[in-house]
Design a protein around this nucleic acid. Sequence first.
DNA 1: TGTAAAAATGTAAACGATTACAGTTATATC
DNA 2: GATATAACTGTAATCGTTTACATTTTTACA
Lengths: 345, 345
Amino acid sequence: MASPKGVSLKEVADKAGVSTATVSRVINSKTGVKGETELRVQKVIKQLGYRPNRVAQRLRTTRGASKLIGLLIPDIQNPFYVDIIRGIEQYAYAKNFAIVIGNFSQNEERQKFYIDILKSESVDAFIVAPFPGMNEYVKELVEEGYAVVCIDRGLANVDMDVVKVDNFQGAFNAVEHLIKVGHKRIAHISGNVLIPTTIERISGYEAALSKYGIAIDRDIVIGRNSDYKSGVELTAQLLDIPNPPSAIFTSNNLLTLGALETIHSRGLKIPEEVAIVGFDDMYWAMSLNPPLTAVRQSGFEIGRITIELLHQRIADPTRPFVSIVLKTELIVRNSCGYKLNTKVT
Amino acid sequence: MASPKGVSLKEVADKAGVSTATVSRVINSKTGVKGETELRVQKVIKQLGYRPNRVAQRLRTTRGASKLIGLLIPDIQNPFYVDIIRGIEQYAYAKNFAIVIGNFSQNEERQKFYIDILKSESVDAFIVAPFPGMNEYVKELVEEGYAVVCIDRGLANVDMDVVKVDNFQGAFNAVEHLIKVGHKRIAHISGNVLIPTTIERISGYEAALSKYGIAIDRDIVIGRNSDYKSGVELTAQLLDIPNPPSAIFTSNNLLTLGALETIHSRGLKIPEEVAIVGFDDMYWAMSLNPPLTAVRQSGFEIGRITIELLHQRIADPTRPFVSIVLKTELIVRNSCGYKLNTKVT
DNA sequence: TGTAAAAATGTAAACGATTACAGTTATATC
DNA sequence: GATATAACTGTAATCGTTTACATTTTTACA
């Protein structure tokens, strides 16, 4: 079984009768190569099917020129992050960056492991969706001079570029919608309160209630983790209290799914017996029965902007840091009481 | 803004008062280093926080030793592939492999692009979920001597390791279940017929009908692509014919979701007015109303076995090729008529 | 204590690119 | 045609490892 290494630059140089330096210049379209020579080299490159070895390139090159970006994702099972990845990929390739994904499955140890790997792979830059316990590592990256863009939230006391979503407004709109549809007793199932987005969403929830003069009942604002199981169990808990809520606002897509399971398993009708709005508008939302009203945050757009920022930062490391906040959209379907299908931005 | 490259092996060697060769031997736990020396070097490594530069390692190392695997995924939006990725990751890291994901979004050009990138990143091996139009590229990889494992299907005329699922049996079980529950007019919405799994599932569908003496009606076996939109439209088409089916078997999770949207939007009751079984048991299946009966194929397990095979092949390139076929499980929930929750393997 | 073998360590050449710097042609100008 | 300048091309060091081979040190044993 042959195991040929690819064609090397030297082979191209030999065959074309020039030096390696000239071939390198041709590849990187540097100036200073005679048209005739360039053509000859190009021809040989085509002939031999030469592709530069990225490993060698990265070894030689100084940081910022390797065109490799490390991406730290807390949980690839969460479709929201998948959307972000897609957005990043799409635009990264347009700008000729390659990306390597480190999915650490919300596991701190594995996250550290990935950071080390990515560093030793000589990435130019990091895109990080910070997770509790991650602050120190990310701070270190910034201090070591990597270009870093954070998704979803920034870090206290660390200047960096951040791309996030207006969680407060998104939650506010969702709850306001429930109120306008007639609900007065609205519960909130929140996620991990160590995550800032969770807290912002709780604030939005509270602000909406306050605006309409509804007292906040701490018994029906509950949270544990941001996962499916929590959704199932917390919903059961909510429905078991003496005067259960008429509507529930869930803080992310996994919690929503968990809540739905409990609601269906008890045979409760949505929205008549209990209404629900979820944060995150996922691709399955329309296929639910009834279709789910949800707060949409565009992961794809987050990805696009992230790459844009990274590109700018690499080009000009002194550019001032920015924090970009994207608007959410409330997608109204049929899980709250109305039968319409419109957007509230 | 400082931009320090990491600590190098040479610095460790200097500080420990040994040669680079010795440090390298310590790192790779080669024999032939005195205990005392090893300890001293280890100490310096810890002190300086030294991490070998993977780029330099890969450049030097011959194929098979770089511990990097390229993963070609047709569509990261499909949660089935995400499960596979998770399985692969989990076991890859246990075996100290790193993986780099190339998600080509069912785009042939981008797929080619990724193969080139991964090659020039000096990966040891490829894991490929082949996609129509991909055959040539994959064949080339095998010929070039890469270790390659295919997921989901093999390639005609090419010997290689394959990990797949028993699509025939899975489909057969699903349809048989529908028949046993009382359905006689069962439609099938299939996917892209250029994909072998699609064809195998159609065969399973037909075999089940045959076994129970039900004639196959070509009008209710329809397929186009394996995406959401096709599910929506083909279901509408099925429900519009004069004598519509009483049950539908959908060939993958996206088609299922599309079918559900159409069914719900027409206000049809599941399973009373139309029953449904889907291939792919996704995490949202339990949250549907009613919970979905589905054929489960364990992406996670596929991933695990894939890594196992790859590991073996790298260790022994002459090992005979194998094709591993995993069983599916029919997860019976409430979308076909019964109210039980059991498994049929 | 001397010597052969074994064990430990060091030296230096790769791996495949980029890039300062030097060296060589070609062009322009008088 | 000589010379200054511009345009082009080549040489060789370098990035951070691994590893064949050479060299030194240690150990074993007569």
